[in-house]
Computed example of a mutant assay.
Amino acid sequence: MTNPASWKKSSFSGGGEGNDCVELAHLDTRIAVRDSKAPARATLTFPADEFAPFLDALKGPDFAGL
């Protein structure tokens, strides 16, 4: 799907080796998201213009404390 250099690790990575996070890749018109602990497994993709609202929703009260 994308080469390893195109994936960017979250700045909120966990301690130790920093593997407890997600990685993002900017594709032509989409944003891809994958689990950094299992990069060969499933990848979610979002239309680029819908990714910011998705992140805003995750920051909202429905996901507080998760």
Rank of each mutant, 00 (worst) to 15 (best):
L27G: 15
K59C: 13
F46Y: 10
S10N: 06
S10C: 08
E50D: 14
G15C: 04
S10D: 01
H26K: 08
P53C: 11
T45E: 05
D56K: 05
A48Q: 15
L27I: 10
P53Q: 12
K37N: 03
V33N: 05
A48L: 09
D56A: 15
E23R: 11
P39L: 09
F12E: 07
F12M: 09
A52D: 11
F12L: 11
G14S: 14
F51M: 09
K37C: 03
A40H: 15
P39M: 09
G15N: 12
A42I: 00
I31C: 10
T29H: 10
R30E: 04
V22R: 04
L24N: 06
A38D: 14
R41Y: 11
G16P: 09
D35C: 03
R30F: 00
L55T: 14
V33E: 03
K59E: 09
G16C: 08
S36R: 03
R30C: 02
K59N: 14
I31D: 10
L58Y: 04
E50I: 00
R41H: 15
L58W: 05
F51E: 09
P39A: 12
S10Q: 04
G60C: 11
V22W: 00
A52S: 15
T45D: 03
A42Q: 11
P53R: 04
K37A: 05
I31P: 13
K9G: 03
A52E: 12
F46T: 03
A25W: 03
I31T: 14
S11A: 12
L44E: 00
V33Q: 04
S36W: 02
G16T: 09
F51Q: 10
L44Q: 00
A42C: 12
F54Q: 08
G15I: 06
E50M: 01
V22D: 01
D20C: 08
D28W: 01
K9M: 03
F51S: 10
A25P: 02
L24S: 06
K9H: 07
G18K: 07
R41I: 01
G15Y: 07
A40N: 15
S13Y: 06
L55K: 05
S11M: 05
P39I: 09
S10W: 00
E23Q: 15
N19A: 13
L55M: 12
S36N: 13
V33A: 05
G14L: 06
S10L: 03
A40E: 15
R30M: 03
D56S: 15
A42M: 08
E17L: 08
